[in-house]
Design a protein around this nucleic acid. Sequence first.
DNA 1: ATAATGACTGGGG
DNA 2: ACCCCAGCCATTA
Length: 117
Amino acid sequence: MRAVSAGFRERVYEVVRRIPAGKVMGYGHVASALTQPGMARQVGWALAALPGDTDVPWQRVVRSSGHIAAQGAPDRAILQRALLEAEGVEFTADKVDMRRFGFGPEVFLGDPAEREA
DNA sequence: ATAATGACTGGGG
DNA sequence: ACCCCAGCCATTA
């Protein structure tokens, strides 16, 4: 058995599958959705184990900063950006504006004044 | 059982 | 705002 526990992986995939097209979620955010904050790295691990023909929209998961992750797979990183732009996600200086494209109820927990109109 | 690794994160320079 | 470093945690060696 390679990578993370099968159960954990499936939970990650379930969450990722719920991210609507045109939106992105941070690894830490996904981990929180799994009620297991602090496992951002393991979330990335689960996505890294995905096959090329998966139906999981792994491209919608980026770093909290909005930058593309995929360190060990630069080729996948390029593909990821292409897929996201095809979904309508705009990139600025190789980063995504989480304030606009970030998904998840958690993002609304912050101060309302923080939010962009 | 200990040490190294990595699709991460937050704080400090 | 960008780069570097220490902290985290399950999987591997």
